[in-house]
Design a protein around this nucleic acid. Structure first.
Lengths: 206, 206
DNA sequence: TCGAATATGGGACCTTAGTCTTATGCGGAA
DNA sequence: TTCCGCATAAGACTAAGGTCCCATATTCGA
């Protein structure tokens, strides 16, 4: 993975820790942005490129877990690596259940952290790629008219044109017209591709 | 979910804890089986119906994490709820990263445990259902001859018979024959269904 | 009120896919 | 050697899908 373009967002209220983390992370060629509090990160626009968040659990103001929840609420799923000096098991379990990539306790060795960051960034890259593809298909699906969506639904269920016509109370000819437009708008050349595209639309709500 | 038929496997080296857990779990109508050690559980045949494992981390012999790894190695993915008196964060994180449903520390309240068990059983039911369907499709796929598999691959890519014929160096007529047999053996009536079936085969290796 | 988007559908054709029957060649197992 | 599974394929259709061009009706917003 070309982690070179990735950015690691470091959130810790201790300036010296931020500095040390930034130095370590930069030493492997990653970009860093540091924040002294959860709020500072939230005020930032959501990141563009791939990246991850390295987050201290205990901080004044919003703590790490609260920030994680807030990000989830805003539908920002940048992977999070927690670090902490004084954590407990409940905290770590809660963080992991909420999807954290790792939860490290200080002092941790550099390799551990860098390994977790690498995993997190790869996860983000993978997710963002899937996301991009998915939203493109979603966009196309939204250009369909209601009737075209109905036809699409029945086509991907394997119905024949005549069956679709019967179910919708229309002429087979009309179904063909809708169907052709669906293929055009979804930008697919075959039923097989159409089925795959439709599966992805279905997989994340309409 | 009809958790009524589900079985909870309790593994703890302390007989009094086993007894208490069994009583609690049975009080909500679930079956229990208790084991004094990881090895005892492993000696048992893998469970048939839906269920989950409630597992103490610290035990003589194989500990909880080792048992989890061993089960994973044997491809048994019954969900695990860990409980512990003396755990640390590393342990909990490792358990969660390996897919544990929850990691509770004693003393926990009954609702917490029962909630985790409920989640775990639902997960198992969901997984087992998907598993069953998947292995059926897999079974059908294995009845295909090598040539039929090639044709299947190209059909679900959206290729036309004539294209498939060209790619395989065969007559279009022959492709039609293979294709018809593929539809029969995979027990589908349409290309749409075939694509979906093939996706599932592809999703878990050949 | 007028044009754009939507849904409808006929007619004419061509291309693909599917079915049924029949048949050949090959290689391995009994 | 004989039979079976596999791959091959032609002939003769039937049916299903796709593509032109064309035309009508409704609705809705500018």
């Amino acid at each position: 993975m070309k982690n070179g373009a990735a950015t690691v967002f470091v959130v810790d209220d201790d300036a010296s820790v931020r500095k040390a983390l930034a130095r370590l992370i930069q030493s492997v060629g990653l970009q860093t942005k540091t924040f002294a509090s959860a709020q500072e990160l939230l005020d930032q626009a959501p990141p563009e490129g791939p990246g991850c968040i390295v987050l201290d659990v205990r901080m004044p103001g919003l703590n790490g877990l609260e920030l994680q929840a807030e990000l989830t609420g805003r539908n920002i799923q940048t992977p999070i690596v927690f670090i902490t000096g004084h954590g407990d098991i409940q905290m770590s379990v809660r963080a992991m259940k909420s999807g954290a990539v790792d939860f490290l306790i200080k002092p941790f060795n550099d390799k551990e952290l860098l390994g977790a960051i690498k995993t997190a960034i790869e996860k983000d890259e993978y997710f963002k790629a899937a996301q991009t593809e998915h939203s493109e298909i979603q966009r196309r699906h939204q250009t369909l008219t209601p009737r075209e969506r109905e036809v699409l639904g029945l086509v991907v269920k394997g119905r024949m044109n005549k069956e679709i016509a019967a179910e919708l109370g229309a002429a087979e000819k009309t179904v063909k017209v809708h169907r052709a437009r669906v293929m055009q708008k979804m930008q697919v050349q075959s039923v097989a591709e159409l089925v795959r595209a439709a599966e992805r639309v279905a997989s994340l709500g309409s």
